[in-house]
């Protein structure tokens, strides 16, 4: 199955990509995809960011399906205004 991965903010700048397509075996989870990405992009931090699949926050155990869109969500801008 093919998963589209989106990079934002400092992750986009560090890795030098906005989006990549990743091939994964059926039944793979978000955590499996994160391991694959960490191997491919050494600039990714060891501590994973938050994840969203199809625009909804999920955890690492979330199962992926063909054509899902996974976004790596760095910490958002925070609240000190």
């Amino acid at each position: 199955m093919t998963i589209r991965v989106l990079f934002f903010a400092y992750l986009r700048e560090r890795c030098g990509v906005r989006e990549v397509d990743v091939e994964l075996p059926e039944g793979a989870s978000v955590g499996d995809l994160w391991q694959r990405l960490a191997a491919r992009f050494p600039a990714l931090p060891t501590e994973p960011p938050k994840f969203a699949v199809n625009r909804v926050y999920v955890d690492k155990g979330h199962p992926l399906h063909d054509n899902d869109e996974l976004a790596l969500i760095p910490p958002v801008s925070g609240g000190n205004q």
Partner: peptide, 10 residues
């Protein structure tokens, strides 16, 4: 909004 909405500030 400032904790969950995916908007980043540089």
């Amino acid at each position: 909004l400032k904790t969950t909405v995916p908007i980043w500030k540089k």
